[in-house]
Design a protein around this nucleic acid. Sequence first.
RNA 1: CCAGAGGGGCGGAUGGCCGCUGCUUUUUGUAAAAAAGGUAGAGGAAAGUCCGGGCUUCACGGAAAGACGGCGCCGGGUAACGCCCGGGGAAGGCUUCAACGCCUUUACGGAAAGUGCCACAGAAAACAGACUACCUCGUCCUCGGACGGGGAAAAGGUGAAAAGGUGCGGUAAGAGCGCACCGCGCGACUGGCAACAGGAGCGGCACGGUAAACCCCGCCGGAAGCAAGACCAAAUAGGGACCGCGCUGCGGCUUCGGCCGCAAGGAUGGUUUCCGGAUCCGCGGUCCGGGUAGGUUGCUAGAGGCAAUGGGUAAUCAUUGCCCCAGAUGAAUGGCCAUCGCCGGGCGCGGAGCGAUCUUCGUCCGGUACAGAACCCGGCUUACAGCCCCUCUGGACAU
Length: 123
Amino acid sequence: MQANRKQLKKLNVLKSRSDFLKMREGKKWVSHGLILQIRENGTSDTRYGLTVSRKVDKSAVRRNRIKRRLRSVVCDVLPLYARPGVDYVLIGRPQTATRPYESLCGDLKWCLKKTGFLKEDAA
RNA sequence: CCAGAGGGGCGGAUGGCCGCUGCUUUUUGUAAAAAAGGUAGAGGAAAGUCCGGGCUUCACGGAAAGACGGCGCCGGGUAACGCCCGGGGAAGGCUUCAACGCCUUUACGGAAAGUGCCACAGAAAACAGACUACCUCGUCCUCGGACGGGGAAAAGGUGAAAAGGUGCGGUAAGAGCGCACCGCGCGACUGGCAACAGGAGCGGCACGGUAAACCCCGCCGGAAGCAAGACCAAAUAGGGACCGCGCUGCGGCUUCGGCCGCAAGGAUGGUUUCCGGAUCCGCGGUCCGGGUAGGUUGCUAGAGGCAAUGGGUAAUCAUUGCCCCAGAUGAAUGGCCAUCGCCGGGCGCGGAGCGAUCUUCGUCCGGUACAGAACCCGGCUUACAGCCCCUCUGGACAU
């Protein structure tokens, strides 16, 4: 289920604060391990961003671990299952640090399916 | 061997698949860049942001004073410190008949520069004091008391603290009133760089505590911070300069290029027309400066590490040699998995022992901390699963 390298290169990172604020206009779906915000960006690029606020965990070490696991999930799932030309923002939850990795990948696919952005040709 | 105290150190390992950031090599490519390989990549506290610096900007630069803030035994270390090391004083604890000694703590300058405060109790508490009881004199009388004058700080009671303590002399009773010892103050002189220590002799004893109360004295401090600062600079709006075309009427001004005000007109908008209203009064092009998003830089070779030798009780310093050791920026240094360590507990076989119990090995379960560089150093404080080393104390065993 690993994505190959060519597909990974298409992923860009959301950086500016205004991009994140625009995500409020898009769709949102909550799963057990993560929250997905989704919005079409009008280009052919697939972009993603991560949000783990201080509300989730006060410890910077555990917040960084949550972000690293989410980034890994994004690299494994998005190139294969997500439609291009869309911005994705994953929001961490306290359970993200301890939930099994396979379940986290399943959570992201579930959110894609529920928001209607799952790629049609992916099984 | 076990337990405790103090000091110092370490802060899991190996492998597989897939990734991230910097530097670098080769190949491809006009270039941008891409691919493959190599190499480096979180901490003892990176944390809290509490002190001290470097660095940057502000004031042209410097000095002094005042205000404000901080610090405060002495000597040393340091770029500097409120930090560190050594020493001294004081307080507390242990041992001891006691001293000596050992350990711990310590914002520890000045109370004869001045001001303030010292509750309650008590007769009296800071220019300190006669309540009871003591001694004596006088008067009265119911003959042992009452009242009045005086002497006395020895006794009682109060308090955190009561005018040096004990003994002898002395006295009407007493009192450093006198003497001895102890305490206290001043102190020649001696030791020490100093803080300070010892102390001949002198003084009948006065001069309470509190400065984390005001204050006084000495020393230090300009302010803000890498979101500092420097550079490049899109879109949009707005500013300025120049060029080309356009510029109705009236009035005013004029440096004769034009400009301003009013009216008319035009443009925008609406499916069309008319009426009314709103907004605007030039349009196009080129260039310039400020400056936002964004980007580059500052950004890691430094009060740097490691080793040896030497000086010093130590903190630490000097010399020589070797080494280059994170630079991210919605923020890299990882994600997943396997095996093994380490610690705790259960079970099983075996071993030691009379026994309590201890233990090799195997197996199962649980745990494996605190915590993430953000310009960089020196400290302090706080958090921390476990493990190792040294010193001391107590206990057990053996001799």
